[in-house]
Design a protein around this nucleic acid. Structure first.
Length: 198
DNA sequence: TTGCGGATGGACT
DNA sequence: GTCCATCCGCAAC
C-alpha cells in the first residue's frame, strides 16, 4: 500500500493528545483521509507550494493546520520525506480526556458531537493556525498509542466533501464507532446495543 | 485590488 | 439524503 495510505490506516485507533493552557485533551482517532500531494487533485498541495501549504512540503511528522470555509480549522499529519507533500486529514475522534472542556469549547453537551468532523474536533481541542508546522512529537500536540491493543477492522470508503479526484477509497474509518462523521450515530448506537445484549 | 472556490457544519426534507 | 451561509487564501488582473 502507498505509504501515506498506510499511515492513514494505521492512525485509526491511535490517540491524538492536545495540551493547551494546562488543559489536557485527548481522543481516539476513528476517521482519517489521505491526500496524496502532486498525484491528487483534491490535495491542497496539488498545484505546488504556497505560503498556506508549505508545511506539507516539509518532513513528515508535523501538523498541517489550515483554515477553510471562513470558520473551520482542520488538522493533518504530514507524512513522507521533505518534498513529498502527502498528508493525513484527521476527521473524527472518540473523546477520552478533557471532555468537560470540549463541551464548553463546542457549546454542546452531546459527547458524540464533540469531535465529529475535522472542524469540530479542532474547535473542541483548541487547535488553530498557531499549531501549523508544530511537531507531532511536541508538547502542545502529539500522537500516542492506545494502551490496550484493540483490534479494529478498518474500513476504506470514499472521501467526504471533495469535488476533484473523487472515487478514490482514501478515507479510513472504524466502522464500529459511533463517533465517525456523516453517519447516523444514534442508529449505530442502537445496533451496537442490540449486539451487546444478544 | 478583486473574484472565486472550498479537505465544512448544521439545518432541513 | 439536499441546501447554503460564510470568509480566508490564492491567483489573476
Amino acid at each position: 500500500m502507498q505509504p501515506c495510505l498506510r499511515a492513514a490506516k494505521e492512525l485509526i485507533g491511535k490517540i491524538l493528545v492536545r495540551k493547551e493552557k494546562g488543559k489536557l485533551y485527548s481522543g481516539v482517532i476513528v476517521e482519517t483521509e489521505a491526500y496524496l500531494g502532486s498525484r491528487d487533485a483534491a490535495s491542497h498541495s496539488f498545484n505546488g507550494p504556497t505560503k498556506r501549504n508549505s508545511v506539507m512540503f516539509g518532513e513528515g511528522g508535523f501538523a498541517y493546520v489550515y483554515f477553510t470555509y471562513g470558520n473551520h480549522y482542520c488538522v493533518n499529519a504530514v507524512t513522507g520525506k521533505a518534498g513529498v507533500a502527502h498528508a493525513v486529514l484527521i476527521r473524527a475522534l472518540e473523546p477520552l480526556e478533557g471532555i468537560s472542556f470540549m463541551k464548553k469549547n463546542r457549546g454542546t453537551e452531546d459527547v458524540y458531537l464533540l469531535c465529529r468532523g475535522p472542524g469540530n474536533l479542532c474547535r473542541a481541542m483548541k487547535i488553530d493556525g498557531s499549531l501549523n508546522g508544530a511537531s507531532l512529537l511536541g508538547d502542545e500536540i502529539f500522537l500516542a498509542e492506545f494502551p490496550r491493543e484493540k483490534r479494529i477492522k478498518v474500513k476504506r470508503t470514499l472521501r467526504i466533501g471533495i469535488t476533484k479526484n473523487p472515487g478514490k477509497l482514501y478515507r479510513f474509518i472504524d466502522p464500529q464507532s459511533p463517533f465517525v462523521s456523516r453517519i447516523n450515530y444514534k442508529k449505530l448506537l442502537k445496533a451496537n446495543l442490540k449486539k451487546v445484549s444478544a
